[in-house]
């Protein structure tokens, strides 16, 4: 179990799951060429849910959350995000993308822009926020991720953990209603994982709807209200974290858990 979680007592007062549906995925299939990468995915995410998606590499978990903001295209089935169905209509895609924040494994900050410019770019050019207001919002979120003093540096001058916190702040500046995390701590040195997870926990405490692909099972146990296990492009098992870790049903899940928690 990750030690990063041990010293944290969560404030659960805002962590409520509502009945409102945030994401509806039904009977969705995706192929890479002839390779069937996602098979008959059915998933409903309610507002306020914190979902951790786990599974071996190549199981399609990253592809699944990348379909939710159309970084990957699905070939069959339906994905409805915040009431907007994802089709090839560019207007819908841009609308969904501006409502859904995404954090990547390799941060993907824009290296030619300062931290502040990274944060204000999308609000200014997509949301048409006045520059001054966008900068105030950016500083608010930089304070929140505890690195306001880095605002005028370039991404290349920051540590990995700091860059990932900037990337989270960059997404938050667009005031997203849903946040997607694609292995946000996998590229980080162990001592930096905690600072990023702390930021994510704070976000969860505020009631953000989160889908998180991660191998941090401590985070899953402490924060998630649902854990989804995927293998070979399909959802094999989903449950609340307590039952998922203590009483896994499928053989595949048991094997996976024994492999990642076994030592």
């Amino acid at each position: 179990m990750s030690e990063a979680m041990a010293d944290r007592k969560l404030d659960r007062s805002h962590m409520q799951v509502s009945d409102e549906v945030a994401i509806q995925i039904s009977n969705m299939n995706k192929w890479y060429g002839t390779f069937h990468v996602l098979r008959d995915i059915d998933l409903t995410v309610n507002r306020g849910e914190r979902i951790v998606i786990a599974g071996p590499s190549g199981s399609g978990k990253s592809t699944l959350i990348r379909c939710i903001n159309r970084l990957e295209e699905h070939q069959q089935g339906q994905i409805i995000v915040d009431g907007t169905e994802l089709t090839s209509d560019l207007k819908n895609i841009d609308k969904v993308r501006s409502e859904v924040g995404m954090v990547f494994q390799h941060f993907n900050l824009f290296p030619h822009l300062t931290i502040l410019e990274n944060l204000t770019l999308a609000p200014i050019w997509v949301r048409k926020t006045p520059k001054k207001e966008a900068e105030e919002v950016a500083m608010h979120y930089l304070n929140k991720v505890k690195i306001p003093e880095q605002a005028h540096k370039y991404p290349g001058m920051l540590s990995g953990g700091q860059q990932q916190r900037v990337a989270i702040a960059r997404s938050l500046c667009m005031k997203p209603r849903i946040m997607l995390f694609d292995e946000p701590t996998s590229a980080l040195d162990p001592e930096m994982i905690k600072e990023v997870l702390d930021t994510m926990i704070e976000l969860a405490e505020e009631g953000m709807t989160m889908l998180c692909v991660t191998h941090e099972m401590g985070f899953a146990q402490a924060v998630a209200n649902r854990v989804i296990f995927m293998d070979q492009g399909q959802i094999v098992e989903q449950n609340n974290p307590h039952d998922f870790f203590n009483n896994p049903q499928s053989e595949r899940t048991k094997l996976f858990l024994s492999q990642i928690l076994g030592h």
């Binding site: 993308r97 770019l121 997509v126 997404s171």
Partner: peptide
């Protein structure tokens, strides 16, 4: 991908 994910056309 980061540019796309932020909703830039």
């Amino acid at each position: 991908e980061a540019a796309d994910a932020l909703g830039l056309d």
